[in-house]
Amino acid sequence: MYVVATAGHVDHGKSTLVRALTGIEPDRWDEEKRRGLTIDLGFAWTELPSGRHVAFVDVPGHERFLGNMLAGVGPAPVVCFVVAADEGWQAQSR
């Protein structure tokens, strides 16, 4: 199984991308849904046409949740860094 963490600036579409790729809502907590903001690590998975499996770890993008973000991307062998096309690269992304 492949494991991919999503990372990037807050509100750049990380959870939306994971949901589109897997059909699974990575934001589990009511507060996350109410605020439209990932707070805790989210998990989703899918099977590729090849039969291989990919798991996603969706991490928070807000600087207040940096500890949770590091916990998610630290052990992941691959990170997909998401940048919103309408906002571009942000200083916090550095």
Rank of each mutant, 00 (worst) to 15 (best):
Y2S: 07
Y2A: 06
V3Q: 05
V3I: 14
A5T: 07
A7W: 00
D11V: 05
G13D: 01
T16W: 00
V18L: 10
R19D: 01
L21M: 03
L21Y: 00
T22N: 07
T22I: 11
E25G: 10
P26N: 09
P26D: 09
P26G: 08
D27P: 11
E31M: 09
E32Y: 02
T38E: 09
T38K: 09
I39H: 14
D40W: 04
L41N: 15
G42S: 04
F43H: 10
A44E: 02
W45V: 01
E47F: 00
L48M: 15
H53R: 12
V54I: 15
A55W: 01
F56N: 06
V59S: 13
V59H: 02
P60H: 12
H62L: 14
H62P: 12
H62R: 13
E63H: 12
F65Y: 14
F65Q: 07
F65C: 06
L66H: 10
M69L: 14
M69P: 05
L70V: 13
A71K: 05
A71L: 15
V73F: 01
G74K: 08
G74H: 06
A76G: 08
P77I: 09
C80T: 06
F81I: 12
V82I: 15
A84R: 00
A85I: 02
D86P: 00
Q90L: 11
Q92L: 12
Q92A: 13
